[in-house]
């Protein structure tokens, strides 16, 4: 037998052998697999509990987040109010009249005869004239009146509740009272010895606001 014939015949022989050796097949009916009632109840119960817990957790988380957001929004709102309030207070304090009043309280007087100092040469440009403080009475502001009830009560109340800033203000007011009396004297104006004076080593054009010590 040639190799070729061997190759051709082999499957046929194998098939004949296989057909003789193959057992009879028959179907087997599997018994239905059923959960026991207890297991089923536990399973369903577990699913139910899991779902409810999940819903509870989700709802709680959402509620908590909503509360947090609301609280944060409220805090942001209050802080915004606070910032606006402080900004308004700062702007009021920076107003020319408020600064003028503070300057008077600090013993400063208006100087209509400002001169320049050349920083490099030390030369004085202009005619320096001692400020007496009475050259322009209109620029001298009387000290702040004590808060009165009525129209200004709101503002006074608002400042009064400011805590630390109010304390600082009160302290400065007390200092101002001490220096208020000699403020109109030329000696004070021309010989700055008060602790509130700026350092003498600050050569610069005379204060632009027209106020000097």
């Amino acid at each position: 037998m040639t190799a070729w014939e061997t190759i051709r015949e082999t499957p046929r022989r194998l098939g004949a052998a296989a057909s003789q050796a193959r057992p009879q097949l028959r179907s087997i009916i599997s018994p239905p697999r059923r959960l026991s009632p207890v297991t089923f109840a536990v399973l369903v119960g577990s699913l139910l509990v899991a779902g409810m817990v999940g819903m509870l957790v989700l709802t709680t988380v959402l509620q908590n987040q909503a509360f947090e957001v609301r609280a944060a929004q409220r805090a942001a709102s209050e802080l915004g109010y606070r910032a606006s309030d402080l900004e308004a207070q700062a702007n009021r304090a920076k107003a020319p009249e408020a600064l003028g009043r503070r300057a008077v309280e600090l013993g400063m007087v208006p100087n209509p005869h400002a001169v320049f100092i050349d920083v490099e040469s030390g030369e004085v440009l202009g005619q320096p004239i001692s400020a007496r403080g009475d050259e322009m009475p209109s620029l001298t502001i009387a000290p702040a009146p004590s808060p009165a009830p009525g129209a200004d009560a709101e503002e006074a109340e608002g400042v009064a509740t400011e805590g630390a800033p109010e304390e600082a203000h009160a302290t400065e007011g007390a200092v101002a009272e001490e220096v208020a009396e000699p403020a109109t004297e030329e000696a004070v104006a021309t010989e700055p010895a008060e602790p509130t004076e700026p350092p003498a080593d600050a050569p610069q054009p005379v204060p632009a606001a027209g106020v000097s010590g």
């Binding site: 209509p112 005869h113 400002a114 001169v115 320049f116 440009l125 202009g126 005619q127 050259e135 322009m136 054009p205 005379v206 632009a208 606001a209 027209g210």
Partner: peptide, 15 residues
């Protein structure tokens, strides 16, 4: 006179 006296040095106008 008062206003001009204040304004000139305020804006850095040299004498």
């Amino acid at each position: 006179r008062d206003i001009m006296s204040l304004a000139l040095p305020r804006y850095g106008v040299p004498p």
